[in-house]
């Protein structure tokens, strides 16, 4: 597609996505539905957060990751949760987990 076609496509997706994003804020009927289903929305929120975690462990750039990558990512998540338990500090646990994963990947991939 050329630039002009892309501009039209982007305008269309912007309009549609904005309507989806804004309607629940601006339309009182939507809000009432939300208030009546707070528990449902709480459970879906937890499921989305958990789904993002498991998806990131198993899928990368639209393809399933190899078992080695899956193992490294899983160990990094467990390691960061253990770090959180001992340090009680989210940024420390976060960077420790990511750093540990990068180190493992470099060791396994022979980059070190």
């Amino acid at each position: 597609m050329g630039l002009n076609e892309w501009l039209i496509a982007l305008a269309g997706v912007f309009a549609g996505s904005y309507a989806l994003r804004a309607a629940p804020f601006l339309w009182a009927g939507f809000r009432r539905v939300g208030e009546r289903n707070l528990h449902f929305l709480t459970y879906t929120s937890f499921a989305i957060a958990a789904g993002i975690v498991s998806k990131a462990l198993l899928v990368s750039a639209g393809a399933w990751v190899g078992w080695q990558d899956f193992a490294i990512r899983s160990v990094a998540v467990v390691f960061s949760v253990l770090m959180l338990r001992s340090w009680r500090n989210v940024p420390v646990a976060l960077f420790a987990g990511v750093g540990f994963a990068v180190l493992l990947k470099a060791l396994v991939g022979g980059s070190l």
Binding site: F46, A49, A50, I52, V53, K55, A56, L57, S60, R73, A76, V77, S80, V81, L84, V90, A93, L94, G97, V98, G99, A101, V102, K105
Partner: peptide, 15 residues
């Protein structure tokens, strides 16, 4: 590789 892990690990910690 490292860059893509911040979001899932952060959400795992929050959970």
């Amino acid at each position: 590789f490292g860059g893509t892990l911040f979001l899932p690990i952060y959400f795992a910690l929050l959970l």
